[in-house]
């Protein structure tokens, strides 16, 4: 499994042609208390960079962009009752959705963990 990051602070963990997507710990910290997560519909076809999910915090609503193109297989149902999981466990239990990648080559343009860390430190 390999984890990639976007400049918009999403992460995607790829296992074969399946990817799990969430927002980074840095992102949740910037957003503050998360009160609602709007998730993509299962079966939806999404393009790289599409706004597919919305994370609502006490202070603002923020779009989440899909890091790659694919078909949504599953949304994290636990977030319906417990959106604060995105705060407490952003890069694991607070994942947003899983998708089947249609163009794995898109991963090439993303950052690895070290590059993302350097990117955040430079902000």
């Amino acid at each position: 499994m390999t984890r990639y990051f976007t400049k918009d602070h999403e992460w995607i963990e790829v296992d074969g042609d399946t990817g799990t997507v969430g927002i980074t710990d840095y992102a949740q910290g910037q957003l503050g208390d998360i009160t609602f997560v709007e998730l993509p519909a299962e079966g939806a076809s999404v393009g790289k960079g599409d706004a597919v999910s919305v994370v609502d915090s006490v202070k603002a609503a923020s779009d989440v962009y899909s890091p790659v193109s694919g078909t949504v297989d599953q949304a994290n149902a636990a977030l319906a009752d417990e959106p604060e999981l995105v705060n407490s466990d952003a890069e694991k239990g607070g994942w947003l959705f899983r998708l089947t990648l249609t163009d794995p080559a898109e991963l090439d343009g993303l950052m690895d963990e070290a590059a993302y860390k350097a990117f955040v430190e430079a902000l």
Binding site: D8, H9, I23, V54, A60, A61, S62, D63, Y65
Partner: peptide
């Protein structure tokens, strides 16, 4: 991700 709306602007 990006902020859609916020009260600090």
């Amino acid at each position: 991700m990006s902020e859609i709306d916020s009260f600090d602007d």
